[in-house]
Simulated scan of single mutants.
Amino acid sequence: MSPAAPAGSTTRRLSGSAVVAGLAAAPFVLGPYAIGTLSRILVFALLAMSVNLLTGLTGLPTLGQSAYFGVGAYTAAIVGKRLTEIGPLQLLVAAGVSALVAAVTGWLAVRARGVVFLMLTLAIGEITYSAAVNWKPLTNGTDGMSGIPPVVPLPGAAALEADGLVHLYVLAVFLLLFTAVSHLGATSFALALRGIRDNESRMSAIGYPTRRYALTAYCGAGALAGVAGGLWVSVQRFVSPGDAGFEIAALALLAVVIGGSGSTGGACAGAALVWLTRDYLGNLEVVAGRGPLLLGLFFVAAVYALPRGLAGVRLPPRLTRKGTA
């Protein structure tokens, strides 16, 4: 007889299944505003996952993922308006263009580490934001791009105009990418990235091309952020320079810190907490207009009380004892 699975692992699987079931059932029980909020949280969770690939897995804290998020969003918008309304094609093109931009900019960024790397990624984000503002023939400047047609999930299918159908499309893409990124953590490539994070000089001494590994991770994270940007356009049907701005990048990094650096599920949980705090709790009458203050308090609490973030929270033994019987 094979040994029983650890109680914590079983609890996580059951919790994950319950969350997925709830997200899938949401269009049938919630209104349009709540459905739109859930779809945006899923998109933001993908962006947080891309930040986690660099910050948590490779040890490269970044403030530049909004650049590739914005590139992916604009790319998907242009493809949707001028070429095709098929969503998966928009996402593939958005991922490819974002990965290409990440390769060009990352070639310089991955030569640095620590604060210097952080500042370089911040500069990349600001340059991208400025390009979105000033490249008016392509981006329409500060007015943004509107009139983007509803996405079509497959050739020959009807356009997804209802919020619930768009949510299910976003959920399907999210689950596919979440599964892929989760499985990445068990590969030899991920182990090499962790080695670079923990002791890059030793990895280099035993023959690993650490800079090449870091650039590959950087490009992969850029592609994932590009897909998130493409999904953002499917939900919003609008994109503006603010989507490539500093606020989005800072919120994504904050989500990873609060959720637990290095944990894919933690990054998603942190993204949900950050987004709900900013757009829901921050608008309650009791704390109206104080969303940033609440986010700051959550950040301080996570740093001091939860050094491993939400992913490090463990249930009391008495709640999981039944699973070990």
Rank of each mutant, 00 (worst) to 15 (best):
A223Q: 10
L184G: 05
C268F: 03
S234H: 14
L293Q: 07
E85F: 01
P292E: 14
L120A: 07
L91K: 05
A21N: 05
F178L: 12
T324N: 12
G125S: 03
A73K: 08
F178G: 00
A103R: 04
A76H: 05
G16L: 11
A162E: 15
F69H: 12
S261F: 07
A21C: 12
R111E: 00
T264N: 14
G16W: 11
T179N: 04
L294A: 10
A159D: 02
G56L: 02
V235G: 05
T128K: 09
I35V: 15
T121E: 05
P292V: 12
H183A: 07
V51N: 03
L297A: 14
G8M: 08
A267T: 10
C268E: 00
L154V: 13
G141I: 04
L118P: 06
K322N: 02
I86W: 08
L254W: 01
A4Q: 14
G141A: 02
S263Q: 08
S261T: 14
C268V: 15
A94K: 05
L294D: 10
T105Y: 10
G8N: 13
V256S: 02
A255M: 08
A34S: 14
A172C: 10
G114W: 03
E85C: 01
G230N: 12
V257T: 05
T55G: 00
W135P: 00
A131D: 00
V79C: 06
A325W: 06
P153N: 05
V303K: 03
G114E: 12
L168D: 04
A157V: 03
S182I: 02
C268R: 10
E200T: 09
A269P: 00
L38C: 07
A7W: 03
L83M: 09
G22L: 08
L42C: 07
A21K: 11
V43C: 14
V104D: 03
V79Q: 08
N134F: 00
C219K: 08
A5Q: 14
L23A: 13
L281D: 00
A123S: 13
L53K: 04
G59Q: 04
A172R: 04
R197W: 08
N134D: 11
G296T: 07
I148V: 15
G164F: 04
A25H: 01
A305P: 04
L47K: 10
G16Q: 06
